[in-house]
Amino acid sequence: MYHIWSMPRITRRAWKVWHRNLVVFFRTWQVNFFPPLIEAFLYLFAIGMGIGTYVKDIDGTPYINFIAPAILAISVMNSAFFECTYGSYVRMYYQKSFDAMIATPLSIEDVIAGELLWGATRSVMYVIIMLPVLAAFGVISIPASLLAIPLAFLGGLMFAGIAMCFTAITPSIDTLNYPSFLLITPMALFSGTFFPITLLPVLFQYFALALLPLTHLVAIMRMLTLPAFSWTILLHLAWIVIVTSVFCVVAINLMRKRLIV
């Protein structure tokens, strides 16, 4: 029988679900194209011209360069997370899209895997749109920063998996507000994003490193955009890969439990 640790059997058909979302996305591309662009400008102006005039640099790095990778990482988190919570929930509950899909050769595992891949793809798109803006302002270094694109996929998949777990257990769309306010917003502030994690109390530093996924994504992202590589990138990557696998597997199994009755 199935349990939450069952290894899901996913087939290539998952890409069909991904493709369906891609088609819908590009039909309204004007709506989807501008938020990342505007967000990049907003952060640059507010933080760069505002806070940046007071906080000159952090450990020798100009403040704006310090937060540029954080902007990217937060965007990766937000786009995958919101796609796979509100977006997936609407498709699952209101549009009954998943019900329609599983009446075809697609299995529920394929459908959810497709949604997760799509969530990760949203993150990639966000980063692809933001990168040129940040590069134009000279706050990230090219070409190392191009590695942010594959990283966005991995990080996006992680947050998609986490999001899908919430979607699988949420009683209604309103209760999805809890993870966004209690998890996503604090994480965006305390994961070494706008100030170094070392400014936090030691206990909280351990907590952030052990349990806050964004911490690791920001750390890697910063190594790429400054660039300032260190061997610890491997530890961060390993952490992300493990957590991503766990959450994606659990998400698929929870969804199967919710939808296949």
Binding site: V24, Q95, A100, A103, T104
Partner: peptide, 29 residues
Amino acid sequence: KQRLGVVPQETNLDPDFTCYGNLFTYSRY
């Protein structure tokens, strides 16, 4: 399922597509 055609009791057409789009997208599955 590859050989089945199903009309569910509860209508679940894809609101993100046109009539044509619904048929086309579905056949891709």
